[in-house]
């Protein structure tokens, strides 16, 4: 269990480091690579937790390896807090507060979206739609995300 978390954490941290090398923060601006890392990681944990919750057959190490390890190591709270300190210390108040607000807003929206969409898809797959009640065409198109049934 701990080994799975450690391996995942190393991979996640490397992914985050790689992204900041490819996309370095512009001096004095909002560190978009940090914002993106956190928002993407939050969207993916929403997907993962919906899969783990709706599919009991998921491998027992999926959550510690992918969730606690990879995504936990990929996303970071310290760099988020550190960015505020760095930017505000450099007199870049607007960028500091933008980063402070945008990161949690995007991340919380992403985890909600990832969880909701994935769970909707899994529930739809598990329970085929009942025959359309109303005549005159299908009640819900196949790609629709809502109307997943009771």
């Amino acid at each position: 269990m701990l080994a799975a978390v450690a391996l995942g954490g190393g991979a996640g941290a490397a992914g985050r480091y790689g992204l900041t090398l490819l996309w370095p923060a512009a001096g004095g601006g909002v560190p978009w690579s940090m914002v993106t890392v956190n928002a993407v990681g939050c969207g993916l944990i929403g997907v993962l937790m919906a899969v783990v919750g709706e599919r009991p057959g998921t491998h027992r190490l999926a959550r510690p390896f992918l969730g606690t390890g990879v995504l936990g190591g990929f996303t970071t709270f310290s760099a988020y807090a550190g960015a505020f300190e760095e930017l505000s210390g450099a007199g870049r108040g607007a960028a500091a507060f933008s980063s402070l607000l945008i990161t949690p807003l995007l991340s919380l929206a992403a985890v909600w979206l990832g969880w909701t969409v994935t769970r909707g898809i899994l529930l739809r797959r598990r329970r085929p739609l009942p025959p359309a009640a109303a005549p005159g065409g299908p009640a819900a198109p196949a790609g629709s995300r809502d109307g997943a049934g009771p």
Binding site: G12, A13, R16, C42, T76, S78, Y80, L108, W115
Partner: peptide
């Protein structure tokens, strides 16, 4: 800084678990 900051502190802290637990 890479070992302890980007690596250790970066992975000790997390945004994904924080946001999932909030959800």
């Amino acid at each position: 800084a890479l070992l302890l900051g980007t690596g250790l502190c970066g992975a000790l802290s997390t945004y994904s678990t924080f946001s999932y637990e909030t959800l």
